[in-house]
């Protein structure tokens, strides 16, 4: 056994020939939606809370197995269409159906100041900023004002939940303000 302190470099840094990898799998990356804006707003009409889906939601929530199956189905379809990360508090209806949770900074209130001249994400320059995409999509269907709503902070406990069930059960009612939030300063409410 050698005596004396062993010298260990705290952060030696990557080797000289290192190339950036895909990044930590759980870190968000911008994903372009695969559902055309027009179709997305058509689907919205059916997903919006109404008597039918409220009833279905309430039924599904009573049966643990059905709930799990429903959540898996939601995950599969939204992962494929929007790059969904299952935050459980879906913002898609007011972001032009471009998922803000794909923003590396997880910004839910619009693009950061670092968007490149062509609309490129600052962190992943080979991808387009989710908010540039969202603005284009929303504006193309006359929904640009949706992006003026103030979005509340994400509740990190809700990751993995079904956002449709939350939406239908009214648990998402206060995720964002009206789009006329400028008229009077909006109230945030307590966020426990």
């Amino acid at each position: 056994m050698s005596s004396g302190p062993v010298h260990v470099e705290l952060l030696p840094g990557p080797p000289a020939d290192w190339q950036p990898g895909p990044g930590e799998p759980r870190l968000p990356r911008p994903t372009e939606p695969r559902l055309a804006p027009r179709s997305a707003y058509v689907v919205q009409r059916f997903v919006k809370p109404n008597w039918l889906n409220r009833r279905v939601g309430a039924l599904v929530e009573r049966l643990p197995l059905a709930r799990r199956a429903f959540t898996v189905a939601e995950r599969k379809s939204k992962e494929d269409l929007f790059g969904c990360r299952m935050c459980g508090q879906c913002a898609l209806p007011v972001t032009g159906y471009s998922c803000p949770m794909g923003c590396p900074k997880e910004l839910r209130n619009g693009p950061c100041g670092g968007v490149g001249p062509g609309g490129a994400c600052e962190v992943y320059p080979d991808r387009r900023c989710v908010w540039v995409v969202g603005y284009e999509r929303a504006a193309s269907r006359g929904h640009a004002d949706d992006l003026r709503r103030l979005q509340r902070p994400v509740d990190h406990r809700r990751f993995g939940e079904s956002s449709w069930l939350n939406y239908w059960a009214g648990r998402d009612d206060h995720l964002w303000t009206d789009n006329d939030g400028l008229a009077s300063p909006p109230v945030m409410g307590d966020h426990q």
């Binding site: 693009p111 908010w131 603005y135």
Partner: peptide, 13 residues
């Protein structure tokens, strides 16, 4: 920065 048309709205937020 793009989307330039949204930047005033973002400031307004």
């Amino acid at each position: 920065a793009p989307p330039e048309e949204f930047r005033a709205a973002r400031a307004a937020k």
